[in-house]
């Protein structure tokens, strides 16, 4: 297994002994040993159908395959790196938040429908399945918030990074005539999570298409 570890909070180090990992295209900042970097083909390892779905969803993602002997250092625009270990779970994350993953993990597109509108996220999100480690990046250190059936969680769509586990996601809206007049609360749209799992949030807010 490739060893994922943090080298400081903003850089990921992966020790490889002949294995292959997938990483965000262009995220390599340094390596020692023998490494080869190969851009993934047109389909990004998701098959023709998967690539088509990704194209339709506009959930663009370019990954490269890194393999070799030694240590490779990965980073993306000084964003904070969080390691997520998957044991047959499914991680939902925005494609731009994905830094690297074990070769054993499969990626795919998950359609989320209209809830992505207005949050700058588009209609789809990326799904990571399997067993292994994934590294995600966030603007400021990510905070993991646990959700249990007795404790649902609401999240600002702009601060959402990803979620993991058996979670049901719905959109809570509190839009009233004041929102229309521009006198809204500024927190009129939230994601609510119910079930069992973890939600990752970041201490900064992305700009959305719609300000509501």
């Amino acid at each position: 297994m490739a060893q994922f570890r943090l080298n400081g909070s903003k850089m990921l180090a992966v020790d490889l002994a002949g294995e292959t990992i997938k990483a965000l295209n262009g995220a390599m900042v340094a390596y020692d040993g023998q490494m080869s970097f190969k851009r993934q083909g047109m389909t990004g390892g998701e098959g023709l159908r998967g690539a088509l779905k990704r194209r339709i969803a506009g959930e663009g993602m370019t990954l490269m395959e890194v393999s070799g002997q030694g240590t490779v250092f990965l980073a993306s625009e000084a964003t904070e790196v969080t390691l997520v270990r998957l044991n047959g779970d499914t991680l939902f994350v925005e494609s731009e938040s994905l830094l690297a993953l074990d070769a054993g993990l499969r990626t795919g597109v998950h359609f989320v429908g209209l809830r992505g509108m207005g949050t700058g996220q588009g209609l789809a999100t990326t799904k990571v399945e399997g067993s292994g480690t994934a590294a995600i990046v966030s603007d400021g250190p990510a905070i993991a918030l646990e959700v249990s059936p007795s404790e649902p969680l609401c999240v600002d769509p702009h601060a959402y990074v990803g979620h993991l586990g058996q979670l049901q996601q719905d959109v809570v809206t509190d839009v009233n005539w004041r929102t229309v007049l521009g006198q809204g609360s500024g927190e009129s749209v939230q994601f609510r999570y119910q079930g069992h799992g973890l939600v990752y949030v970041q201490p900064a807010e992305r700009g959305g298409i719609l300000e509501i």
């Binding site: 999240v155 600002d156 702009h158 004041r178 006198q183 609360s185 949030v201």
Partner: peptide
């Protein structure tokens, strides 16, 4: 201040000051 909430547990409502 508007837009600074990132997440919450529990029952919380957000109201504009004009409410």
């Amino acid at each position: 201040q508007k837009g600074k909430m990132i997440a919450y547990y529990g029952r919380i409502r957000f109201e504009a000051l004009s409410a």
